[in-house]
Design a protein around this nucleic acid. Sequence first.
DNA 1: GGCTAAACGAGACGGTACGTCCTGTCTTAAA
DNA 2: TTTAAGACAGGACGTACCGTCTCGTTTAGCC
Lengths: 191, 191, 191, 191
Amino acid sequence: MAVTAHKVPTQRGRPRSDESRQAILRAALDLVADVGYRDMTVEAIAARAGTGKQTIYRWWRGKADVVLDAMTADAARKIPVPDTGDLRADLRTFLDATFAAARRPGVIPVLRALMAEAQLDPDFGTAFDSGLLQSRREALATLLRRHPDELRVPVATAVETVFGVMWYRILTRRRRLDATLTRELVELFVR
Amino acid sequence: MAVTAHKVPTQRGRPRSDESRQAILRAALDLVADVGYRDMTVEAIAARAGTGKQTIYRWWRGKADVVLDAMTADAARKIPVPDTGDLRADLRTFLDATFAAARRPGVIPVLRALMAEAQLDPDFGTAFDSGLLQSRREALATLLRRHPDELRVPVATAVETVFGVMWYRILTRRRRLDATLTRELVELFVR
Amino acid sequence: MAVTAHKVPTQRGRPRSDESRQAILRAALDLVADVGYRDMTVEAIAARAGTGKQTIYRWWRGKADVVLDAMTADAARKIPVPDTGDLRADLRTFLDATFAAARRPGVIPVLRALMAEAQLDPDFGTAFDSGLLQSRREALATLLRRHPDELRVPVATAVETVFGVMWYRILTRRRRLDATLTRELVELFVR
Amino acid sequence: MAVTAHKVPTQRGRPRSDESRQAILRAALDLVADVGYRDMTVEAIAARAGTGKQTIYRWWRGKADVVLDAMTADAARKIPVPDTGDLRADLRTFLDATFAAARRPGVIPVLRALMAEAQLDPDFGTAFDSGLLQSRREALATLLRRHPDELRVPVATAVETVFGVMWYRILTRRRRLDATLTRELVELFVR
DNA sequence: GGCTAAACGAGACGGTACGTCCTGTCTTAAA
DNA sequence: TTTAAGACAGGACGTACCGTCTCGTTTAGCC
């Protein structure tokens, strides 16, 4: 077989600095915690990261994109979809893990900021929904679809309701996402 | 001696112009519809209303406050809390009316903007939650508390879940708030 | 002779408050001293005088007018034009008195403010020149005109030169207006 | 080793735009002529120059500074100090040139504005006096100091008196600065 | 090792809105 | 009719960021 190198144009010029990239993501998360998302500016991110503003605009579309990237990059957020054959147990496991992830320090302010930005910037809203939100919905839907007969409502409705109450508590800073809520939701949805 | 000496401090100076007030509220709603909440500025509200900026800042804390006021002032938003003794019927009536109010033209963009602002501005968030949101929760809670034994979950959880799924659909611009959702929710919560 | 009241139309309504008038003039002078003419506002004058802004605008055209009024009202500023027959003596007396008046506390800042305003506001400039400045020039001209032959330059030039050096020192906050200057000027102009 | 290690700190960032600088100075002079110094705003300068307001505030302290810069930058204002050995001739030459410079179109309104601002803003006053005014005084003092015995008054007094009458005519918009005044002043000061 | 090219930091740029301040006018009740 | 009070439309202030640009510098692959 012929070896055609024509497809990789061997990038020229100085490569992207991963050091800067990480400093920016780190600075963004720090600033959300320090001054809040609203008062965090691209200039402040650049200043704290020790980079130029242009470096941020070169790789992201704005501060919302940076924060979303920082959040997504956090690999520890992976939540497994259990499959023991027992819907109640699987659902309980999934919800406990989901809520635990949201309770990790610093996560809720970021989620609130991202959801807010999604309302204000249509493009970001689309990206946010079809990215982070959709992946969560898919995970839960996959779990629920294995036992459709045991549910009191269609899978799609169940998914929106579960994440609905979760986001409602996050956005209104009301009650915690804890085991009690898990128990109540399991009881609610499973026949 | 008779009671009523309770000081009416004889207002001094030129009274507030109700004409300006209404022009401002109107301009704000128009602008949300025209350019979106994010791109609406206090300057633009003042310009369209034919007032000075100072008149806005004198009576409101910022554009979010104006929009909230404009929305709240709309008296047609009153949703009655039915009490026929039949939980399913009452709940169905209440949800249908609630969803219908939300579906009125121009309402959803405003709700999205207010919820976004509530995330970005802590003070506004508090005002928004303990105002508009709380009044809705109270209404539904009042309805549900009449039949605690027929619910699968505590009243508080039911309330948050119902408004959770409603807001989730609003914020993610997903499926409509319609009779189907009403039916599913009634089935879900009522034993 | 008959007493006909027809010429005094017996003014109706509340008479002008002289108390307010004096409070305003006083407040204006105080404020020039406290914060400087530039940072003195009509609002501040009204506030310090305990009057409404309208009362100021009803009787004066702006803060410059108030200050000019306050300065002019100060009757102690009257400078006599001596006439002993001795030009040198008369001139010396006049200049000493003129310089002494200018040296009184608080006078120079006010003069500087008025001359500045005269540059910025053409109307005020005209009023200022044909009022305060002109009366001073007339006084000196009257004095000098009695001895035209003893002067090295025409009266008009002498007048402008004398007040020129006086104002130059005032406006540039340079050397004091004192007896040395008087002596030098007398020597300069009188043959 | 050779001397010259004296750190030229390798300028960083985008260099100042000389195009913008000149556009701003030009716009300022135009506006003084068009609407007068008082009604000229920084915003209008920026608008006419096609720059941002920040660019003005980055390099000048306000409109007075800009106008002073524009006036000073005009190199044609250089007035030589003649030295023929003949005081009367030298003085006449100097004064004629000085007055001619002041009579150039557009100059007097600017001078009046600057002197006014010098009264209102203490910092600007200091800068103005120790800059433009001082350099003029020095020039004339240099000329006069060569012939102290021929003067009727001390050099310092003569200087202040000459510029005094000049400024008095400028500020009161009275008689022109012309050859007649030159002749009279020479006659006045030179023994 | 020199050359080309992209990314980098720095920071000035044109622009926009901010929230404040003051102007001069007005509208009220009280004197 | 004037007064104190204070709201009003208007408009400039000086600041803060936006997103873009233009510098000199750095770091890579290629010849």
